[in-house]
């Protein structure tokens, strides 16, 4: 455990010793903040209009009109920033030749992969925690339902971790960081839209494609639903790429 901890600390600190983490978090907060401002302003405008025409307040809801679509937007921003977080994890070590050094140390590929994975997940944790500021603002100015706020953050964290795991595999498979980032983005985008094909397919294939879409799993967290089905899917999506990465690393270095 201490070996994983050591690698985790080295990697996690590494993010903050370079401008990398700050740029990623700034981009995340800037785009997220802009979306949030637009949505909350629009909601306020609709509230005004409803009051003006005498419609009951219950016609609209801050959770449905702001927090839920905003959670979906945040996950889309994650899709864009995660390749930047994960691209260097293994590829950089291979490029600079430190991978050999690392693997000649008394650590197993699993230690390396888990340490690096946890460091990137740590970054996702920071993003998820910071994203909690937006619902808190809603809580200060309105009366949102706190349940979906918490499940959204949980969902965002699990989704981010699954994305990280896929990115880590791409980084382990390539020594070029740009290729790793582009491949991660492409694969995640594919996971995002795979259910579109379910419209033109029928039967089991359609159900499988719908199931493979990360969006349909995350959507329920944003609603305020915790379903073991989605947790099992996201945990599988975390574990399998991690497993492949560890195998790949082991194979490359003859372990």
């Amino acid at each position: 455990m201490s070996k994983i901890g050591t690698i985790f600390l080295k990697e996690f600190k590494g993010y903050f010793l370079s401008p990398m983490a700050y740029v990623i978090i700034t981009v995340f907060l800037l785009i997220g903040g802009f979306f949030f401002y637009v949505m909350i302003s629009h909601f306020s405008m609709v509230s005004f209009q409803l009051a003006q025409y005498g419609y009951p307040e219950s016609e609209i809801n801050i959770n449905d009109m702001v927090l839920r679509p905003f959670s979906m937007n945040l996950s889309l921003i994650l899709l864009m920033v995660i390749p930047m977080i994960t691209m260097r994890l293994v590829a950089e070590e291979r490029k600079s030749g430190t991978a050999e050094l690392l693997l000649t140390a008394p650590v197993s590929p699993w230690h390396v992969i888990l340490g690096k994975f946890l460091a990137a997940v740590g970054m996702i944790g920071v993003l998820a925690l910071l994203s909690f500021a937006y619902p808190l603002i809603c809580l200060l100015i309105g009366d949102p339902d706190p349940g979906p706020m918490l499940t959204s953050v949980l969902g965002l964290f699990l989704l981010g971790s699954a994305f990280v795991s896929c990115g880590l595999l791409a980084s382990a498979a390539s020594e070029n960081q740009i290729v790793a980032a582009v491949a991660t983005f492409g694969f995640l985008l594919l996971l995002w839209v795979v259910n579109w094909a379910s419209i033109v397919t029928e039967g089991t294939l359609s159900n499988v494609l719908e199931y493979l879409s990360v969006l349909s799993h995350y959507e329920e967290f944003a609603k305020g639903i915790i379903d073991t089905k989605h947790i099992v899917f996201l945990l599988s999506l975390i574990f399998f790429p991690l497993f492949l990465s560890a195998q790949l690393l082991a194979a490359r270095h003859g372990r």
Binding site: I25, G32, F36, I40, N61, I137
Partner: peptide, 25 residues
């Protein structure tokens, strides 16, 4: 379903803009 309308004053909207688009990033 509770949590209906919410009207922001111009001042509050500005404050939110500064906070989420400028201060936080």
């Amino acid at each position: 379903v509770r949590g209906g309308a919410m009207m922001l004053s111009a001042q509050a909207a500005r404050s939110i803009f500064y906070l989420v688009v400028l201060v936080m990033p």
